[in-house]
Nucleic acid binder design. Sequence first.
RNA 1: UUCCCGGUAGUGUAAUGGUAGCACCACAGACUCUGGAUCUGUUCGUGGGGGUUCAAGUCCUCCCCGGGAAGCCA
Length: 563
Amino acid sequence: MSDNVKSGVDFIRERINKDNETGKYNKQVVTRFPPEPNGYLHIGHAKSICINFGIAREYNGRCHLRFDDTNPEKEEIEYIESIKKDVRWLGFDWGKHLYYASDYFQQIHDFAVNLIKAGKAYVCHLTPEQMREYRGTLTEPGKNSPYRNRSVEENLSLFEQMKNGELDEGACVLRAKIDMASPNITMRDPAIYRIKKAEHHRTGSTWCIYPMYDFTHCISDALEGITHSLCTLEFEINRPLYDWVLEQIGYPHRPQQIEFARLNLNYTVMSKRKLLRLVTEKYVHGWDDPRMPTLSGLRRRGYTPESIRTFAERIGISKVNSTIDYAFLEYCLREDLNMRAPRVMAVLKPLKVVIDNYPDDTVEWMPAINNPEDESAGEREIPFSNVLYIEQEDFSLNPPPKYHRLSPGKEIRLKHAYYITCTSVVQDESTGKITEVHCTYDPASKGGWTDDKRTVRGTSHWVSAAHAKKAEIRLYDSLFTNENPDDDSEGKTFIDYLNPNSLEALSGCLVEPGLEKAKPGDFFQFLRQGYFCMDPDSTSENLVFNRTVTLKDTWAKLQKKNG
RNA sequence: UUCCCGGUAGUGUAAUGGUAGCACCACAGACUCUGGAUCUGUUCGUGGGGGUUCAAGUCCUCCCCGGGAAGCCA
């Protein structure tokens, strides 16, 4: 690493570079991702995962996955499994470095005993209400607890009783003895151990006291040899306590906490509490509902791990509270899918087209390129016959200006097939609805091209009626109508901003026959429609696809602009 | 009201005393068998006042604005 600080390097890497220059950690970089197993991971966690695992990879270090499981009341094994799955899916590997804070309960306990012996911690019998009073306020200092000067022997004995389950839950806590007048309230004799007689998902009933986050996290970091403990801004105020604990316990390795801003995205909510509510109150179909910003939801929606990693990298790292445009995430997604998604044809809202001059006993298999962005993706063949379906939107009886699609007398190109010209339409006598469009085709245009200089502006996708497979296609839109669903001014809550049209399920869609062989999770570009992926609900009788994201649609934009 | 952290185009993010740059969005155009992709261009910015300096987004100072903090949550 050069002596000059490089342009474009964020403040965390800058710090690591400096540590490597000074040899602070012997050029080791060890980070960790420390989720609490009390919910599913979301896109905000993805940023943290990419930073922690990404930096470790970049500096040839390592990143630990550590479950911060110090609160048995809220944590469940289900969440542990989903978290592991999501981290792996994102493309990261903790190798053998899978840890649980609960692995350290004995050591953490021993450090607490030492702290008591050093006169730096005491058992406090103030009730929670009293503790709040004694803590003071943001503007006033706190008062010392009457239990603050208990003898070491008494504290040791009391803590032992807490540990042995001889005291009731809530009866007392172990507190660090720091400074009740500190301007930083975190330092006003914080609780470091509380009594909880709950069954822990890993340690069972071994413990009835559990260490608090502030005491657990820094010790876990030290024990694991973490060098750079990267966390979000809300822990900034806890940093003096992090350092205080490590200073007191005198452990030889000293990790350092560095904070960065958490990710905010517009049109979504990120709090675990709110996501949980969406699930439990059934506003969505589960944690992996494709409208959810959870990693399992994004995965089912069709987001690729690559695009999420790229996104995380591009948004950068800073200490500024910021909100990223959802459009930027979609940009990263489209960029990835554009290069990799096979193109196929699917008709969402079918309109029957009959080619009157095409023999009704003939089927031609037309070669179709799979991905114009990737020659190696090759070609496939799709069947063409005299009865087809095109998109309802691709035909208009009274076309608006600049409409380049099919209308009476107009000629368009059927992608990979022929030019067709509309000769007549069949309408339902009572409703006026167009039920069938009749066309003629130009045999000289086979493959979608002619040698004359004829220009055909419009190109439609289509499927052959006799060969197409039926499918259900789920069109997703933003879950919220408000850019900032967390905005609770005007007495509203995020529930009030739910988008009633966030899901439109279409049945009777028709897709080209090859899609029958797709597997859940496979992604495609449905030509001119967007990117879609096969949903796990899919069966051989009922193909199901989710719309991941639309293509940019300048025609829709034009129409919108013109009212 | 106290303490801490921040403030660069609409949104993100660079510039570490020396030309305010990049990306997304928006808009306009070119090109195109996807109204896709690609390419080109345009609008738009250092929160404010003082100060130091040949030179300030950057250093000093005062102010303004935003966020966080009073769990036996993490």
